[in-house]
Nucleic acid binder design. Sequence first.
DNA 1: GTCTATAGCTTGATAGAC
DNA 2: GTCTATCAAGCTATAGAC
Lengths: 218, 218
Amino acid sequence: MAKRGDATRKKIQDAAEELFAARGFYGVTVREITRLAGVDTALANYYFGSKKNLFDSVLLRRAEGLNEARLKALEDVEREAGDNPPDLERVIDAFTHPLLDRSERGGPEWKSYFALIAQVNNSPEWGGRMMTEYFDPLVRRFIAAIKRALPNTPDEEIYWAYHFLSGALVLTFAETGRIDNLSDGLCRSSDLESVHRRLPPFIAAGFRALKERDNEKP
Amino acid sequence: MAKRGDATRKKIQDAAEELFAARGFYGVTVREITRLAGVDTALANYYFGSKKNLFDSVLLRRAEGLNEARLKALEDVEREAGDNPPDLERVIDAFTHPLLDRSERGGPEWKSYFALIAQVNNSPEWGGRMMTEYFDPLVRRFIAAIKRALPNTPDEEIYWAYHFLSGALVLTFAETGRIDNLSDGLCRSSDLESVHRRLPPFIAAGFRALKERDNEKP
DNA sequence: GTCTATAGCTTGATAGAC
DNA sequence: GTCTATCAAGCTATAGAC
């Protein structure tokens, strides 16, 4: 049922994704977007109504399928665990791997998308509202699984640990080249495979440390 | 030796800090800044030459004193350790506490400054260059201390673990309200004291997990 | 659906009076 | 040092021809 203007619509979204990812919402003009897309300027407003609507549509476009894939990964981990608590590291991997995998192997559009998420996530203006809107149902599902993996851990510790996980994961997507500079080239921002190997054990150990820290209280 | 125009200069920087923190470089106009500062529009260009220069000056303004305080905190930890390796958790605390403390107790200008850092850090356009420029010498000093605290850990693990630390810390500064939504009010973005108590043990456990992970290799 | 043309504003920056 | 006045450029958004 592909309509006539669907290709144009997609070209505009693709160009918007790339440019918003690089310079954020205000750093890009509608004219730049349509120029990169190779279509007339007026078409951006024809299809999306406003620049802000276009921005939202770009963020929303990949969120749904992404969340489905992550939910499926979590369900696989839980099914294998059966009646036992799921393994914490595997839960975290189900949360992060579908993202890292698409950024690494999904082509440049996915890289742009995640770089855009990295900016939105750390924006006081949009981070709270947009990330909540697009990702909270899934995140709540994961937090429930983490609670089963770490019984007797106070909720507060779980939420703060999730916050640290979110920050570490999302900075990765920005691929700013900072770690390249800092390590004099030993590590590369673009090497998401390295993150995939290290992030789950790193974060799982952090979660367990907060649990222990709490159990030691008088 | 306070010159005549120093007060105006500071008013412009203060207003710029607040607005850039909220909406980023492109999301703010010079006119808005000078309006909030209560001075004439032309003075921003008179004192700073360009909008970009003003932005840079705002970032630089607090960086130097901040790095001095963090270096002093690290030196205190190292002095107490004497010839022994310093305690990892205390090294991380020396890295993070001067920041969290100023954001929590330094007044709204410090809050704005760190929120601005949170945006710059995750920006593909500026994150790599600016953070490297303003903070790398200090970060390299801390990484050397972490290496002493965790002997026989491959450098690659250290750099990636630092990357995760940076992401977790810096998302905190954005104070987006996301954790408030997610936890239904149990945790608050603005509660940096909670982060101060949890971040060092969380991150230290992560560092150790990467070290172990590597030692287990065949 | 796509284009031209343009309305109506705002932008960063500066020249020059005081 | 501070202000008014203004420039040239660019902005989002839309009306209307095709």
